[in-house]
């Protein structure tokens, strides 16, 4: 819980799906409210966004984040979702995030829980990036071992917008994140990263689809997974280039480490392309820690366990490094802690 308090002091808290406005300051100019209030303050925007995704669930909780045109904030907006004796039917959240023209914002969403009771976080997040906006979006799912985490994330990008998302998954008994990103305006750019670090009987599943519908758009998916013990990590990535998606550049890379003979990795990097003016590539690899590297470290006097840990840290490094320092300071200790559970020398 110590780690959580670190983030809580600066963050908006959403406990069991309910928003508690922090006494702490929000970055200026930014509007954050619960969905119910947003129906009153921004009825048109809310209705229009909600019409794009039919949600049959019981809709009570959710956030509305409105970033006005031209707003540029250096300080990240931190949102901490926490489960604390949650209802049996689970916590249901519906979030809408709108990034106005030319705005530049960083958002971290962090998920955690407490207690031994099984619970679920079940959320739909819709994002709309208007022209020339930039959103740096970091997720960290670090639920309790008993939890189920289900997320549906829908992103629509207008021309010249730029969306960077980095999603870490260390917690939950099972998690399923489905990302659908549509590049609707020309020169929209999307960089989508994911990292599953799972052990015990954890299951992590990322399903990412990027639709290239406008010309000269760019997308890059970089997904990594480390699976230990009896865990299973799956990634299905798809790039769909429509005939309107001329001059598309799209990459996919899936890199995976399998640390135990009972763990499983499944990866399906798929391409669906309907025009010829494209440059697409994908790559995937599955293997254990590189024995040459391990040997090299050992030959320099580093004990096996430590050498493995070093290599695991190296494996997650570029994803971690891509987020801003203040966010790194929040999630790095959690990830380091998770990694230290894994490199216990079971694998060789």
């Amino acid at each position: 819980m110590k780690l959580h308090s670190l983030i809580s002091t600066k963050a908006l808290s959403v406990v069991n799906g309910e928003l508690f406005m922090p006494s702490a300051d929000l970055p200026e100019g930014l509007l954050v409210c619960d969905l119910q209030s947003a129906f009153v303050t921004h009825p048109d925007k809310v209705k229009k966004m909600m019409a794009k995704f039919e949600d049959t669930r019981n809709l009570e909780n959710g956030l509305f984040i409105f970033i006005p045109d031209d707003l540029v904030i250096d300080r990240p907006l931190l949102i901490h979702y926490h489960a604390n004796n949650p209802p049996r039917e689970g916590i249901i959240i519906r979030n809408l995030i709108y990034c106005g023209k030319r705005s530049q914002v960083t958002i971290l969403e962090y998920f955690s829980g407490e207690g031994d009771v099984a619970y679920s976080h079940n959320r739909v997040t819709q994002l709309e990036l208007d022209e020339h906006s930039q959103l740096n979006h970091i997720h960290h799912q670090n639920e309790e071992d008993s939890a189920a985490h289900v997320a549906e994330i829908l992103v629509e990008q207008s021309a010249h917008s730029s969306y960077h998302s980095t999603s870490f998954s260390t917690g939950a008994k099972s998690q399923q994140q489905t990302w659908t990103i549509s590049l609707l305006g020309e020169d929209a750019r999307c960089l989508c990263r994911g990292m599953s670090i799972v052990n015990k009987a954890q299951q992590s599943n990322y399903h990412v689809t990027i639709h290239h519908e406008a010309r000269a758009c760019f997308s890059d998916q970089q997904f990594k997974a480390i699976a230990d013990e009896k865990a299973r990590a799956k990634y299905t990535g798809k790039v769909v280039v429509q005939s309107t998606g001329l001059q598309t550049t799209a990459h996919q890379q899936s890199s995976n480490l399998l640390l135990s003979s009972n763990a499983e990795i499944v990866t399906c990097p798929e391409l669906e392309i309907y025009t010829d003016e494209v440059k697409c590539s994908h790559g995937a690899s599955v293997g254990e820690l590189d024995s040459e590297q391990l040997f090299y470290l050992q030959s320099r006097g580093i004990p096996t366990d430590q050498a493995k840990e070093i290599l695991l840290h190296a494996f997650v490094h570029d994803h971690l490094d891509s987020v801003s320092p203040d966010i790194q300071s929040v999630i790095t200790p959690i990830i380091a802690n998770k990694l230290s559970q894994m490199s216990g020398g079971k694998s060789q």
Binding site: L271, H282, A284, S285
Partner: peptide, 18 residues
Amino acid sequence: PTIEVKNNSAKVEHEAST
């Protein structure tokens, strides 16, 4: 392509371009 690996000593590499 689908890659399913259930043995940690395996090494699987996939490259593709369009």
